[in-house]
Amino acid sequence: MINNKSISTLHNDPESLKNLKIRSTTQNVWFSIMWLAGLVTLIILLLVIGYVIIQGGKALSWEFLTTPPRGGLSGEGGISTTLGTTVYLVALTLLIATPLGVGAAIYLIEYAGELGLTSPVMRVLISIANFAVETLAGIPSIIYGLFGYALFVSTLQFGWSLLSAALAGACLVLPTIIRTTEEALLTVPDDYRRGSLALGATKWQTLYKVVLPAAIPGIITGIILSVGRIISETAVFFVTLGGSHRLPSSIMDGGRTLALHLYYLAMDTNAFDKAMGTGAVLVILIILINLSINLISGKLTARIRGGK
């Protein structure tokens, strides 16, 4: 009763009513501003993507995709060889980075825990390894480029080549693959491991036959993310891949990826239409990559929810 009374006095008290009104007006104003922020972000995205696809779309044609660039300062020709180089580089980089990244993640998640109890040295090493992965993830790509240039291009004499670029690129995407694989492994329930071990399987058999298959969608997400990263990366390859407009015929040959080609077109020639066309191809590729990641992770969450 007392409560009811106090509430009714509150409602009739003009001071309180005024206060409530001010507070709700303030809220409305700020909420509108937040809506506006969200809207502006969306508009920026649509503006950039829309402009590049519409303007670049004018240069797009089957011919543009299938003829090689003329090279030099002419800015003429298509993008066929740069598409090819991009595919080669993505494949080679992932060939190097995937086993190493997935292996590192398996060790850090599945083995590191059991070691911690027995050996303090190992425990320190593992925490340094985790710290190193964090550090790698924060290093700017031009530093990877410098490193690749100093080690692979100069010291090891691989020159400006697919091999140098792929090795530097592998260092760049390694933290992405490690982190996503770790997350995927963490979502595999411990019951799976115990069940397999209880049946007499060794640890590796358990990992290989039970845990890894269950973690595959997450691992694939990491790989696709890395594909996107390599396609969009420019700074690393700018200083390790050379920039020849021809298709490399071996891993010791240089070349230029789509993103590099865009850069050269925009900076060294006046072929902004072709640069925009190349940009449109890049943006479309990135949209496809994002769609497939969302598709996989959507399925993944659906499966986890379904499992519960």
């Binding site: 972000t41 920026i44 950039v48 590049v52 865009l262 850069y263 925009a266 943006v283 990135i286 994002n290």
Partner: peptide, 16 residues
């Protein structure tokens, strides 16, 4: 959309 914004290559932003 925010995710896509993160994925757009820096040369595309530069060109824009």
């Amino acid at each position: 959309a925010v995710q896509l914004l993160a994925g757009i290559p820096s040369v595309v932003y530069g060109l824009f």
